[in-house]
Write a protein that binds this DNA or RNA. Structure first.
Lengths: 358, 358
DNA sequence: TCTTTGTTCCGTAACGATTAGCTAATCGTT
DNA sequence: AACGATTAGCTAATCGTTACGGAACAAAGA
């Protein structure tokens, strides 16, 4: 006979046979109903039987099967977490809070990353439906009227939008006040004396970007600075486009003296461009951005940022979603808007009048 | 009658009634077996019937229920992803690759974050068992002999260790060659003329840390530099301990002229300390670290780093795990060791002899 | 005409847990 | 002692899907 089996089974693999509730019942000498009752507490069980059941559970090494339970109960205790970009530190900070809150409430997360691709997002929305997630937290990537409608059609469970809202999509949402945050940061620049302040925006139509641009214009108005459309550049919330846009801005005939990036990725692209141009910050140019980094304290220039309350965002998102899961679902839509916080560091200074004098 | 129902149902909620395969079968005038066969292709179905089934599926808006399918088939097409720290950019880069690979193979991820807590890790291991994940990818947080045994007991499906190995835990693994990476980086510092090179290590006993310290000593040997234990400080792979350790090192009687941090978090802590001491890098002090950052090009000092191939790590981890899932599980253990890459930037320079002369 | 060989398709028994519905048994109360 | 009320535990149906064994029927060979 060929094909001997060498008995070195070092690799942990699938176990021999599934231990079911029936095995426990048999060993304990009770019915499966009683085992279930002791384990879930759904019905009263006498102390001695409980003891026998627990002993039997330990003896046979029984773990209840969540799949079977989900099928029967009609709930999975799983939440979909559909992200636009898991690589983004802002996202991961939120995810961290979401995970903690969900875990504390006995929910597990299904990780979905759309990679900024609306098609992949829809695929995942479908997947979450088939896998019967009890609810979904969504950082949407698309925009436009049709987009909202399509999500609406695919969605079939309670959902919460995180970071962005979608017009015409009636869902609970948790966002931060991008208008105020940007207004304060740009106001800070204006106060320092800057008159030509450029902004790197995200895609037009995305709420998080639009709000921030609105805040920018508000700050300009307050400072009595005329709005110059050529100082608003779309950096698509991504690093490379932001870098390119910054280079264009800085090479223009009349370059800005200050730059504001609407998110962290664009801030990196912006700073690369600044470094490439050989400019010293904040001497030659002042910069600031939305989103904070934990390394902002450690590298030069120490960036002035608008920090988002990522813990609160994640926690509130889970709270909102779990609120919808119970029977007593409040009727109206809920939109929680959290305040950002301006952190002033070293990257902003008065504009270089010296250059003009020289 | 009190309690009118106001017909403003703006919130998307649970749908009315579940559409099952039976509904499709009824509408198409076939058996549920035939519907299943057409949808999964598990058995031959004639063209006309297929057509009718497909039409019926579209008509009633049927989505197969993955929970029921999992129960019946005994596989969930879910993979557990048990992370030590989702906030770490290295981790998220790997997760990004893992997600892409898993998604491409039709698997969904269950996101678990142990937050560097062995107890939470075990809780999640249990949970993954309960939820019947088909396999697990694990970035372990503990160490020591007992630790491996405990994981072994809890684990019940194929698993792959990522980034770290555990002695006595016979599992497939994907890691990078930390020894070579560190040896090259520290060698680079030695070549520049540094003799007192300090290293911030992770916890002793963690493979990723031990390897890197080994590489450090190898580089010292090659350069003919005597090993000085006081130049090895445990930064626990975390930011604050690394900052504290760096301050101690720099305030010592005979401070090092170069610093190497064994991971990204410690690099940040290290740089904070350097900034706090008012030292200019690389003039006063040279620094380098394991792990690369995408903002390393954008801020000062532009850090010299040892970049890990995160895409490959994630991709290989999934490949290894999926390989174990099929019937034809290869007998032996597999351990894939990937090469890191030294990226030389501006943070290393010859040591400041000037200081000694002055 | 009567097998034989193939094809489709259907009925139905799992998968493993929960729970509605039921049967006894126990306990006070009158 | 009889009665309802309460309780503990059991049986069996159920969740939605897949896969096994066989039925029905057509084509082909004897």
């Amino acid at each position: 006979m060929e094909g001997r089996i060498v008995s070195n089974s070092p690799v942990i693999g699938k176990s021999s046979r599934k231990v079911t509730i029936r095995d426990v019942a048999r060993v304990a000498g009770v019915s499966t109903a009683t085992v279930s009752a002791t384990l879930t507490g759904s019905a009263p069980v006498s102390a001695p039987l409980m003891e026998r059941v627990r002993a039997a559970v330990a003896e046979v090494g029984y773990r209840p099967d969540a799949i079977a339970r989900s099928l029967r109960r009609g709930e999975t205790r799983m939440l979909g977490l559909l992200l636009a970009d898991i690589t983004n530190p802002f996202t991961t900070a939120v995810v961290h809070a979401v995970e903690a809150a969900a875990h504390a409430s006995g929910y597990t997360l299904m990780l979905c990353n759309s990679d900024e691709d609306p098609a992949k997002e829809r695929t995942y929305l479908d997947l979450l439906r088939t896998h019967r997630a009890d609810g979904v937290m969504l950082m949407p990537v698309g925009f436009g009227r049709d987009y909202g409608q399509q999500i609406r059609r695919t969605l079939d469970v309670p959902a919460v939008l995180v970071d962005r809202t979608i017009p015409g999509l009636p869902l609970d949402a948790v966002t931060v006040d991008g208008r105020t945050g940007t207004r304060e940061a740009v106001g800070h620049l204006a106060t320092l004396g800057h008159r030509r302040i450029a902004i790197l925006s995200g895609p037009a139509g995305v709420s998080a970007s639009d709000e921030r641009v609105t805040g920018y214009r508000a700050a300009l108005d307050e400072a009595g600075i005329a709005f110059d459309p050529s100082l608003v550049r779309d950096g698509a919330f991504r690093q490379d486009p932001a870098r390119a846009a910054t280079l264009e801005l800085l090479r223009a005939a009349e370059p800005p003296t200050a730059l504001f990036a609407c998110n962290n990725l664009m801030a990196i692209g912006m700073m690369r461009a600044v470094a490439e141009m050989g400019l010293d910050c904040p001497r030659d140019l002042s910069v600031a951005c939305f989103d904070d980094f934990d390394w902002a304290e450690a590298f030069q220039p120490r960036l002035t940022t608008v920090a988002q309350p990522t813990d609160a965002i994640g926690g509130q998102a889970v709270a909102l979603l779990l609120g919808r899961l119970g029977e007593a679902a409040a009727p109206g839509l809920r939109h929680i808007v959290l305040p950002p916080r301006l952190i002033v560091r070293d990257s902003c200074a008065p504009p270089p009048r010296a250059r003009r004098c020289a």
